[in-house]
């Protein structure tokens, strides 16, 4: 599977992203702006905070507090 894929966005949104690129130094292209917004919208995208062991430990700990789920 390729790393990237093309998607269509309305022109006015693309132009708004272009403006953000011009106004800030954080992004080089409108695609970067759109990717940043999507990452904000999809929290799972940047989630690898806990290791598998830590995940298990935290789940056990929550259970130990009486949270049965």
């Amino acid at each position: 599977m390729p790393d990237q894929i093309q998607v269509a966005v309305p022109i006015d949104l693309y132009k708004a992203a272009e403006e953000i690129v011009m106004q800030t130094e954080n992004y080089k292209t409108p695609s970067e702006v759109i990717c940043h917004i999507l990452k904000e919208f999809v929290p799972e995208h940047n989630q690898r905070v806990y290791s598998a062991d830590e995940q298990n430990e935290l789940k056990e700990r929550l259970r130990s507090l009486g949270y049965l789920g």
Binding site: P43, Q55, G69
Partner: peptide, 23 residues
């Protein structure tokens, strides 16, 4: 803010949330 539970579970798996999940 995006936090509904100690876990995210939509895919039948439980993943413990972290501060990175707070929007």
């Amino acid at each position: 803010h995006g936090i509904f539970d100690f876990y995210r579970t939509a895919d039948y798996q439980k993943r413990v949330v972290s501060s990175k999940d707070i929007r």
